[in-house]
Design a protein around this nucleic acid. Sequence first.
DNA 1: TCAAATAATTTGGTAATCAAAGTATATATG
DNA 2: CATATATACTTTGATTACCAAATTATTTGA
Lengths: 146, 146
Amino acid sequence: MSENYQKISEALVQIYSNILRIEENELRKSQFNNLTIQEMHAINAISMYDHKTASEVAKELHLTPGTLTLTINRLAKKGYVERIRSDDDRRIVRLGLTRKGRVEYRAHAAFHEKLVKKFLKGFNDEEVQVIYRALRNLEDFMADHS
Amino acid sequence: MSENYQKISEALVQIYSNILRIEENELRKSQFNNLTIQEMHAINAISMYDHKTASEVAKELHLTPGTLTLTINRLAKKGYVERIRSDDDRRIVRLGLTRKGRVEYRAHAAFHEKLVKKFLKGFNDEEVQVIYRALRNLEDFMADHS
DNA sequence: TCAAATAATTTGGTAATCAAAGTATATATG
DNA sequence: CATATATACTTTGATTACCAAATTATTTGA
């Protein structure tokens, strides 16, 4: 058990410290290599057809409104995102993906799906439940420390 | 199953995008609140008594030598790390933690241990094996994409 | 011996971020 | 209904973390 604990601890660190870099590698090799990782994550948070407000997206990404404005400026200039002024409250900016933005969104979703498939490969339903419970434990841990 | 898949996929994203922030929160609340997260990770990579070279640590952290030099400068000034010139090859700088650095190292290790304990809470040996296999799947995925 | 290689540092530039001030619009109250 | 306050976003002026390339010191090898 304690030996397993050690291995699991190391695996978690390894996974955590490498996954971002791998996402970045994939991005560099793809047709979207003019995007940075955080721009990609912003596209992801904006999501396909929700038209969330700038504030909502900023909150989701844990960014200040000012930082989000700058990110959206860049993404708009690169043609991935568009601002949609709300008519009923003209202070609000809603965000949408362009066609190009949606293509990138799907590409990233596909990468993520491959990752999850590999993660769960070779397990039956009962075992998947065990894995899910472990992840919920981690979510509880995070909730306790927020 | 596909419903589980969805939940697991979302949990992974949640965990991934929040864990760094939580580490940062803990750090802010601790006695080491003059450290940034990456400085803390550098302390971790330097580790207790290994006296690794600067190059080795840079590689481990996936940083260029120049960036590591700057990080070490800051950590030395703050009193966590010391440079040890090697006598047999005077180009080489070995890195060690000061007493203060070792205290911080242990504090972070304790945090990490709490996390892993919570992750594995309530599982028997067999179930822990399942979880470990899933993590190895992820490591395989990363190896395939490196 | 001295050219090439190696280890670290320095320098110049860019990304991403925040805090605080500013602008435009909406809401609430006296 | 006028105006003070609140809200949503943007702008500005920093700081931090990072990289690439040039530099310095030292070692190795031909």
